[in-house]
Amino acid sequence: MKRLISIFILLFLVGNSFAKTADFLGVKEVVATKGGIQYSDDLVRAAQQAYPKLAGKTQLHHITPKYLGGAANGPLVPLDAAYHQQITNAFRQAWPYSQGAIKDPAVLKSVMDKVYKQFPLPPGYGY
């Protein structure tokens, strides 16, 4: 049930990406901009509720996933593992891992735009 509620909260926040502010069940910190929602602790908390076993662990995320052609030594961003899982899920929904088909960079751009608009990355990393 908790998981369902957290998913609902997350969908609500994502769905309100053009709102000036989001205020739902006490969740306030998400500030929307013209380009979409921004990274916030609330997004991470919602992810942690969806994936409690991953909460609190830090994983490095390849900004361009390797299976889509990102370099092994490409830029990395440290993320809470639960939030990382949601980003991974979104990429694999758009483009199943073992499907084999490889897209051209123009489509990759659209996929990355879409995923990172819903699950923004924290600024200031990329090492």
């Binding site: 990274y39 900004i63 751009k109 990355m112 990172y116 923004p120 990329g126």
Partner: peptide, 29 residues
């Protein structure tokens, strides 16, 4: 081909920025 509707033999590179301000670059292929 690229997909069932696109038989391009190559692509121009693209550069863009994703949320958080991270630049992404794909070379010409």
């Amino acid at each position: 081909g690229v997909d069932p509707f696109d038989f391009s033999e190559g692509s121009e590179g693209v550069e863009f920025t994703v949320s958080g301000g991270y630049p992404v670059k794909f070379e010409k292929e």
